[in-house]
Design a protein around this nucleic acid. Structure first.
Lengths: 154, 154
DNA sequence: CTCTCTGCAAATGCTTTGCAAACTC
DNA sequence: GAGTTTGCAAAGCATTTGCAGAGAG
């Protein structure tokens, strides 16, 4: 088991003066079990052992986020994804074609972003939104198809 | 500046083999009238002179986007925003506190992003998602400086 | 025992879709 | 006239909210 144990998340909730319940424990367990994954609220609800209502999942995630234990991000047009707050800042890349996601260290990006945003006094949170594009497998092939604009989404 | 006139948008639709209708003309006019704004589909529907159904607005925007004349972006948790494709690639900054949006040239950012994404063969579209954070007024304990940059839309 | 949290159901906001009629080419 | 497009209405998702009862402290 990793450092970001379910217990740590539960402890964080307790520290925030919130009550510890079975549904909350279960959500924490799911998050802790996949510290590197990007899970939607629905996925979390599905992975939980005992049935937990979607609204409870959202409320729990909201509580965890408020305590700084969890972050949520938008990886595309779909639902938001949640994950335990990572120690090192990182950025998300999402392939708009196949939906694959990649984590990249935010160090270099953070520096570059700061160069652009600092002049106007903007403090950026690089981790919150993803950069979309196309991964290696989806980018190169199919240069031009006859009569096709190549704009398949979804 | 390349005036993104309504006629240019209409011409683009025609070039794409699509039909020119009053609703489409009207949507093009609204977009052309605010080339630097980020409009939601609902806002476009509201600004149009003759009543145009929301679904038609979406379908028209989809057509314009497919023709490369319009882009849409997610500036936060809310609805997506649309604007005419700008000549120079640029990026969006959104203040999570006051909602102000800023455009920054994407040149430097694009380069930095490429450094990070190229090793894994990822082709990024930097313009699609916004970077959230806090603008000078909402973030800085620093007193106000003269010569503010950035412009508010929305 | 008190007050928070849960589950259910219904509501909300954004976007998409089916279909017959209207319109463009 | 043929094939797109439109408007309308309704369906889909993701997310939020009201409320009575269950459970934590």
């Amino acid at each position: 088991m990793a450092e970001a144990s379910a217990d740590a998340l539960v402890a964080g909730l307790r520290r925030a003066g919130l009550r510890i319940t079975e549904p909350r424990r279960a959500v924490c367990a799911v998050l802790a079990a996949a510290p590197d994954a990007h899970l939607t609220a629905a996925e979390i609800a599905a992975r939980v052992d005992r049935p937990v209502d979607t609204s409870t999942v959202y409320r729990t995630l909201e509580a965890l986020e408020g305590a700084g234990l969890v972050e949520h991000t938008h990886l595309g047009h779909g639902p938001g994804v949640y994950h335990v707050t990572p120690t090192p800042p990182h950025h998300h890349l999402v392939c708009e074609a196949c939906g694959a996601t990649f984590d990249v260290p935010g160090r270099d990006l953070q520096r570059a972003v700061r160069e652009v945003t600092e002049p106007i006094g903007f403090v950026a949170d690089v981790t919150h939104f993803a950069i979309v594009g196309r991964c290696r497998d989806c980018a190169a092939p199919i240069p031009t198809l006859p009569g096709d604009h190549g704009h398949e989404d979804r």
